[in-house]
């Protein structure tokens, strides 16, 4: 059975029921609309509106879901030797997310958050965390085009607070 998903720009995506169920939000909406896998009529007559997701982003979400529809639920986090909590991003996911510009990646993260697709959300969150990891403050600002609205005095105070070791 297929489910119709309608994006904010009125684009209709027809996806497999299993894929639709990967999103907790869609799953809840289907329940609310009495749409079930066995009831083809309800699936055909209804479509799920997703006002927070655009067509382009939805296409990427579906591509990710297609790849992961048969995945077993996996352990979320692991601790590496440095004590950093990490989510292991698979090679396929790395390649998949590499193709997106950072702006698109953030849109995709927003969509994963809204649709409650935990696996995709964790993948993107970990990818961004990996981009930040090991960078200095000014490198982070430059990399992500962040305008610093802290005064020098505030920065000094924060540095004083967070300082803990003289290397």
């Amino acid at each position: 059975p297929n489910v119709k998903l309608v994006t904010s720009d009125n684009e209709e995506f027809v996806v497999d029921f299993r894929i639709a169920k990967m999103s907790v939000t869609v799953s809840r909406l289907m329940e609310a609309m009495n749409m079930s896998e066995t009831d083809d009529a309800s699936l055909l007559s209804n479509s799920i509106p997703l006002p927070n997701v655009t067509k382009a982003v939805m296409a990427r979400v579906i591509e990710w879901c297609e790849k992961h529809k048969n995945d077993e639920p996996k352990e979320e986090k692991e601790n590496d030797k440095r004590g950093r909590t990490t989510h292991v991003v698979s090679d396929w996911d790395k390649e998949f997310l590499k193709n997106d510009e950072f702006g698109r990646l953030c849109q995709l993260m927003g969509a994963a958050n809204y649709l409650e697709i935990k696996g995709l959300f964790n993948d993107i969150s970990q990818t961004i965390a990996n981009m930040i990891h090991g960078k200095k403050s000014d490198e982070i600002a430059e990399m992500f085009n962040i305008h610093c609205d802290l005064t020098e005095a505030e920065k000094k105070e924060i540095r004083k607070k967070t300082a803990w070791c003289e290397d």
């Binding site: 930040i132 403050s137 982070i140 962040i146 610093c148 505030e154 967070t162």
Partner: peptide, 24 residues
């Protein structure tokens, strides 16, 4: 904020020290 929090919770203390002086 919840997305940012999730990203930052994956970082080490040293990374968070750096993030603390990027913006308010």
């Amino acid at each position: 904020s919840d997305c940012l929090l999730d990203v930052l919770e994956r970082l080490s203390y040293r990374d968070l020290d750096a993030m603390a002086t990027v913006s308010r």
